[in-house]
Design a protein around this nucleic acid. Sequence first.
DNA 1: TGAGCTGAAATTGCATGCACATTTCGATTT
DNA 2: AAATCGAAATGTGCATGCAATTTCAGCTCA
Lengths: 253, 253
Amino acid sequence: MVKFDFARLSGHVYAKTTMQNHPLKQIRRREIIRAGTTVEQMVRAIADMIVTGQMLPGEKLDEVSLAARFEVSRTPVREALRELGAMGLIDREPNRSAVVTNVTETYLHSMFEAMAELEAICARLSAERMTVDERRTLELEHKASMRLVHAGAQEEYAAHNTEFHTRLYRGAHNDHISEMVTQTRARLAPFRRAQFRLPGRLAKSYEEHGRIVSAIMRADGAAAAQAAYSHVEMVSDASAVFATGMEPGARNA
Amino acid sequence: MVKFDFARLSGHVYAKTTMQNHPLKQIRRREIIRAGTTVEQMVRAIADMIVTGQMLPGEKLDEVSLAARFEVSRTPVREALRELGAMGLIDREPNRSAVVTNVTETYLHSMFEAMAELEAICARLSAERMTVDERRTLELEHKASMRLVHAGAQEEYAAHNTEFHTRLYRGAHNDHISEMVTQTRARLAPFRRAQFRLPGRLAKSYEEHGRIVSAIMRADGAAAAQAAYSHVEMVSDASAVFATGMEPGARNA
DNA sequence: TGAGCTGAAATTGCATGCACATTTCGATTT
DNA sequence: AAATCGAAATGTGCATGCAATTTCAGCTCA
């Protein structure tokens, strides 16, 4: 049983919230330490494990193991699990262990479709509402990413890609839509992980981004929406390969 | 301090999940009794109180009072609060009491806009995908509601209205979009409650529904989307009157 | 052989208790 | 009288413990 190291999480120093029996009580609580409560940290940590594929769909999450792993009691673990359940990352049923959500193929499809629709909305709104600064940064960052394509830097391009889409969400200037699309994106992450490994996918992605950017630059909402929709469709197709080959629930702890 | 009666909730018989000291153990657990765990019931109960306006934005939800009210310990209360927080119905910060979410005016606006976009998507997809049965029922129910408009039956029309929109969500045949729009709708409920009291709103709503239905019947997705979008815009405008007049946070327990 | 039963082990649901944080309110000072 | 400080009161965060449920290995019997 490997214990979990909170400190690794998101590059922040970790300190237990409750300073029970701790001699150094004078450290300012969480003014320097941007970490939140134990539960919040656990939520992030577990969500991360699911989203990055360290935990596969169907895998069980039992409370005592998690409590041991994080070195806390079951109480905060239960709260974290409840929140993860609300986020849709795990399934919970009364009196049985939580399980990493194993979406059906049709539900997965509905999520990809929803993703396309939401991204299309964001692109359209971005085309209509982005400030000059936002537009300029979007275009600059996009052009800068060409280097990554030529270098074939998959990891780095993936990071750029996330940022690109986040810019689109923010550019829509609608917080609720941003939240919805961000959450949907997180839930789809496990199924989208390996897409940039497909040959030629990087260049294709870059080209599709280009279409979105150019539509936004000329404030053509309809074109931006269209470009964003088909971009997500491509990703969806590319991901479907992995999703179906995944044999969910196979690795049950 | 009035204690809460679980049995009143959603018309189902209530039985504590744990049968501690109960002689009748042979009743099949929760096959007949559709109630769920204590926490689930509390989530529903509290969400209901918020959504129906029995609890106003800004009102505090302290754990000990709730525990007393529901006659449980603080542990399940905390879990319920965590879930309500994830649903966006309450705000929680470490070491302070949960508070009924008091959305800012701009966030409220973003939710109404998101609602319009989502409803438009549902209407478009419904126009493209509804089965003949779904289309027929939608039209029949819509026409039947004319009676309620003439009678001025606000309560009944509100119920019909909910069902009408739910039909649209289901007709889109996309579970994830359904979930998103349903959740958004729930969060907006407190601000939309009184809209049918506005003079002439019933007839206007009926007319707008009619446009959506007719577009769906002739499978015109674009028109359906357009009609749905402007329908929600109307509701948004009608609700804004109440939202701004609400003076949130005024009634702090 | 295998389907069903049984009881112990593993695991979840909730109550209780204590440490720490925040808020409240009165005493003291200016 | 207003402002400030500090201690009691109120409330949250988490640990621990017990009852109830689920799981599963071993057994029974058709």
